[in-house]
Design a protein around this nucleic acid. Structure first.
Lengths: 106, 106
DNA sequence: AATATTGTTTGTAAATTTGCGAACAATAAT
DNA sequence: ATTATTGTTCGCAAATTTACAAACAATATT
C-alpha cells in the first residue's frame, strides 16, 4: 500500500530537501550523525570555510529542524534532532516509494 | 552495518536534494510518480504558474537526473528516470540511516 | 578592570534562483 | 503560404543564497 503525501508533507519535504541542498550542510549532517553530538569548533575544524559561514549553515539546518543547538558556555553543542530526523527519514522513504518499478520492497 | 557515504555521494545527495528543494518541483515529481508518464501540458495544467516557469523547473529536475523528457512532436513526454530514482532512493535511505536511535531497523 | 575564548550577528558583495511575458522553434492543419 | 498547437529559450526584475571580515555578546581567566 502506497502512502499518500499531502500538500503539507510536500512542503515539508521541500523545506528539508532545501536545507540538505548544499554539500557543506550534507557534510555537517553526516558529521553530526557520526558524532552523536559535538561543539561548533569541532564542526568548523572539519570544514574549509569561515566560522561565520559555518554558523549560517548551522542556523539553516536548525531552522529546518534537522539539528538542535544548546549553549554550554562558552561553547555551543550541536546534535541531530532525533525526532525530526526520524520524521524526515519517513517522509523521504514514503516520497521515494511513490514510484517503484516493482511492488516488492524491503 | 552502516554504509559509508563518500564525498562524491555527499555531493550527489546535495545535488538531488537541491532539485527537490522547491514545493513545485516536489509536486511535479509526485505527479509524475503517480502518472508513470505524461506530457508537459498535463503538468502545466496541475500547477498555478506560467509555462515558462514550469519548463524551467522541469529542466532542473532533468539536469539533476530525476526525470527524463522525450519529444513526441508536437508534445514532450516527461517521466521519472527509473534508474536514477532508484539510486537516489538508496542514497537517501543510506543517508538517513547514518543516524538512528537504535540499531533495529526495518 | 583588562584579556582571552567561543560563537553569533551584521554589513556587504557576488552569484544564483524564481517567475514572468514575449519571442522563438518545430511540426501539423488549413 | 498561413495559422494553430506545443514547449523552449531569452531577457529582465526581484528575491534569496553564499561567503567573508569585522563587530559584537557572553562568560571565564588573569
Amino acid at each position: 500500500m502506497r502512502k499518500i503525501i499531502g500538500i503539507e508533507d510536500q512542503e515539508l519535504i521541500a523545506r528539508i530537501a532545501k536545507a540538505m541542498g548544499h554539500p557543506t550542510r550534507v557534510a555537517i549532517l553526516l558529521f553530526l550523525a557520526s558524532q552523536d553530538s559535538c561543539y561548533f569548533g569541532d564542526i568548523h575544524e572539519e570544514l574549509p570555510i569561515a566560522k561565520a559561514t559555518v554558523s549560517q549553515h548551522l542556523k539553516e539546518l536548525r531552522e529546518a529542524g534537522l539539528i538542535q543547538g544548546e549553549i554550554e558556555t562558552p561553547k555551543v553543542k550541536y546534535c541531530i534532532h532525533k525526532e525530526n530526523w526520524k520524521m524526515a527519514r519517513e517522509l523521504f522513504v514514503d516520497f521515494f516509494n511513490t514510484y517503484v518499478e516493482k511492488d516488492v520492497m524491503c
